[in-house]
Design a protein around this nucleic acid. Structure first.
Lengths: 205, 205
DNA sequence: TAATTTGCCTAAAGGCTTTAGGCAAATGCA
DNA sequence: TGCATTTGCCTAAAGCCTTTAGGCAAATTA
């Protein structure tokens, strides 16, 4: 009986491609077995479980995005770097929607700590060096950028802005303009009593 | 044989509660049948499919968030309104993680158009009236706010910032400060040749 | 009270996950 | 080269989820 030559890497790669084609949700051990024309149980020698497979795809996506970001960042700084970095995420998500969805998979803290996720925040901090924010404002800004890029791209991907004017690409460019302006004019921390406090919320849990 | 008194509403409600307890992914027709101590097939008289059930939960979450937002917005304007609005999303997501996850479900365009999603963008526009942005900048800003709130909350929920200083609530407050500052000083559209263009990207699809 | 509608049930088919145990191909070592 | 071991894929089987079809009894209506 000829062997199919399965490895965790090939399974992950094929799973990523499948995710882009049919959606990350539809990536299943069974579907992958069909793809390699192999019985389902055979995959369990290479992959611990369905969740393990999905985690590997997520890690692959994070790596690929970090690589692309590092590439885009080389030789740039300031707004130029910010825009290039932002575009990496958006472009990746548009080109690889399934992988991008995978990258949102909730990872265990240990897995996350060992993932390319840390490169992402390092790169974000590198960009922010061009804007000269003191700690802890820099951390706030890292989180703002991460959240904004992720949130916008994910809304765009789920069809939020499609087919309504103005074109989403225009908005994206303006958002980069706006974030650049914001980072250059980062507001000082308001005085204690001027701050808007969150509501106390005593409603049912 | 006594009847359980199932209705689409009760199923949706119970499904939402289940989602908050065990995660939206784990909400299943079978689990719901167990909850009502009823055979699985019985639910199919009230709900078209598993996907239908999930869609109903998503719509419920969108309604609840819109109601809470409308409530929070009453009598407020400016930064006060912005902060209250932002907190509604974050608080809702923290209190109802399963429902919040449901609200991210990709809806068909028709379903989305008939959902409370439209109230959300109307309210966002109402807040922006306090900042006096011309079209199309106002639309860009609506998308920025939506993306930022969603993205930050969703990163926070997936554990991104937990257990690392500074506290996520502090960052959240500073992000609201920053967005307020940004909206008050919304940058003019850069001249054509000063703009940073997205990279042409000819890599493989 | 009889007729109709409605609600939940049994039955059954099909899909995905995961574990256990087996045979054969590949690899390593005399 | 020949034998032993490891490795890779297979069959079998159990468990859970979805969905459809058809049936009986409870609730509703006349």
């Amino acid at each position: 009986m000829a062997r199919a030559g399965l490895t965790p890497q090939r399974l992950t790669q094929a799973g990523a491609e499948l995710a882009d084609e049919v959606g990350f949700e539809q990536v299943t051990v069974s579907a992958l077995a069909r793809h390699f024309d192999v019985k389902v149980a055979s995959l369990y020698s290479h992959v611990k479980s369905s969740h393990d497979l999905k985690t590997r795809i997520a890690l692959l996506a994070l790596e690929e995005m970090a690589d692309a970001a590092a590439d885009a960042l080389a030789g740039r700084s300031g707004k130029d770097a910010l825009a290039a970095f932002a575009n990496v995420y958006r472009d990746y998500a548009r080109r690889h929607p399934g992988r991008y969805a995978a990258s949102q998979l909730r990872l265990s803290p240990e897995t996350a700590a060992a993932s390319a996720g840390v490169r992402h925040s390092q790169m974000t901090r590198a960009i922010l060096r061009g804007y000269d924010l003191p700690e802890p404002e820099q951390t706030h800004a890292v989180r703002l950028l991460g959240g904004t890029f992720h949130g916008y791209v994910s809304l765009e991907l789920s069809g939020g802005f499609s087919h309504s004017a103005p074109d989403s690409s225009v908005t994206w460019a303006r958002i980069v303009d706006a974030l650049d302006a914001l980072l250059r004019n980062w507001p000082a921390e308001p005085a204690r009593d001027a701050r808007v406090e969150p509501e106390r919320d005593d409603r049912e849990a």
